Amino acid sequence: MIDAAQLQPLRDRRAQIAKRLGDLESRAAKIAREKDDLDREASAIDTTLETLAKVYGVEVDGEDVKPKHGVSTKPENTPTMFGMVETVLLEHALWGDDFLEGQVIYDEIRKRWWSDAPRNSVIPSLYRFEKEGRLVKLGTKYGLPQTNEAPGGQTPSASEPEWESDDPF
């Protein structure tokens, strides 16, 4: 028969493993944050270089502007960032999800249009669209602002019935 003292080395080893796993998870989180920071900085530098090239009319070779560390560029014939976000939100609204987490929007964009989209190309855009009034934020979720416009941008007149917000057609 085994007594509790004989199991102690296994318990001690299990505690060591748990501590080591915690340390590794902490380091991985730190590395992920640092990578995100560097990706954001590289993206900001790319934008600055592209903007300066346009402002001063300088031809800039795409390889000189884009970082060498593999940041993805949006595929050709892909809708604008807002167009992709708007489509995702409109489709989910048909099923009753008027507001979505940024991660869900990001995942949908990757699934449908831009499979290797960097997170820092999508998530900051959501924040910017909210600041511009093109999106609204409810807690941590984003949605389209409620309008009194009919499809096509027309505002119903007093003689016309207003569009029902829950009618998808």
Results as ranks from 00 to 15, higher is better:
residue 3 D to Q: 05
residue 3 D to W: 10
residue 4 A to E: 15
residue 6 Q to F: 14
residue 7 L to Y: 03
residue 8 Q to H: 11
residue 8 Q to E: 15
residue 10 L to Y: 14
residue 11 R to D: 14
residue 18 A to Y: 03
residue 18 A to C: 04
residue 20 R to I: 02
residue 20 R to N: 02
residue 23 D to P: 02
residue 25 E to V: 00
residue 26 S to I: 02
residue 27 R to G: 08
residue 29 A to F: 04
residue 29 A to W: 03
residue 30 K to F: 01
residue 30 K to S: 15
residue 30 K to E: 14
residue 32 A to D: 13
residue 34 E to Y: 00
residue 34 E to C: 03
residue 37 D to L: 07
residue 38 L to Y: 08
residue 38 L to F: 10
residue 41 E to W: 02
residue 42 A to D: 01
residue 42 A to F: 03
residue 43 S to E: 06
residue 43 S to M: 13
residue 44 A to T: 06
residue 44 A to R: 12
residue 44 A to Q: 00
residue 44 A to V: 04
residue 46 D to I: 07
residue 46 D to N: 08
residue 47 T to E: 11
residue 47 T to H: 08
residue 48 T to F: 12
residue 49 L to V: 08
residue 49 L to W: 03
residue 50 E to C: 02
residue 50 E to P: 04
residue 51 T to M: 06
residue 54 K to Y: 11
residue 55 V to W: 06
residue 56 Y to F: 15
residue 58 V to C: 04
residue 62 G to H: 09
residue 62 G to S: 13
residue 65 V to I: 10
residue 68 K to T: 12
residue 69 H to V: 01
residue 72 S to I: 05
residue 72 S to W: 06
residue 73 T to S: 09
residue 74 K to V: 11
residue 75 P to W: 08
residue 75 P to S: 03
residue 75 P to E: 13
residue 77 N to R: 14
residue 81 M to L: 02
residue 91 E to M: 04
residue 92 H to C: 00
residue 92 H to V: 03
residue 93 A to H: 12
residue 94 L to R: 15
residue 96 G to K: 04
residue 96 G to W: 13
residue 98 D to V: 02
residue 99 F to W: 08
residue 100 L to G: 07
residue 102 G to F: 03
residue 102 G to I: 02
residue 104 V to Q: 12
residue 107 D to W: 01
residue 109 I to M: 07
residue 109 I to W: 04
residue 112 R to L: 01
residue 112 R to I: 04
residue 113 W to E: 05
residue 117 A to C: 10
residue 118 P to F: 01
residue 120 N to S: 11
residue 122 V to C: 05
residue 125 S to C: 05
residue 125 S to I: 00
residue 125 S to K: 07
residue 126 L to R: 03
residue 127 Y to F: 09
residue 129 F to Y: 15
residue 130 E to W: 09
residue 131 K to Y: 06
residue 132 E to H: 14
residue 133 G to K: 15
residue 135 L to F: 07
residue 136 V to K: 13
residue 136 V to E: 11
residue 136 V to D: 08
residue 136 V to M: 04
residue 137 K to H: 01
residue 142 Y to N: 05
residue 142 Y to L: 08
residue 145 P to S: 10
residue 145 P to Q: 01
residue 145 P to A: 10
residue 145 P to M: 10
residue 147 T to Q: 13
residue 148 N to I: 09
residue 149 E to M: 15
residue 151 P to N: 11
residue 151 P to R: 07
residue 151 P to C: 11
residue 153 G to Y: 00
residue 157 S to V: 08
residue 157 S to M: 06
residue 159 S to A: 09
residue 159 S to N: 12
residue 160 E to W: 12
residue 160 E to D: 12
residue 161 P to C: 09
residue 161 P to R: 08
residue 163 W to F: 10
residue 163 W to M: 06
residue 164 E to K: 15
residue 167 D to L: 09
residue 168 P to I: 02
residue 168 P to Q: 00
residue 168 P to F: 12
residue 169 F to Y: 14
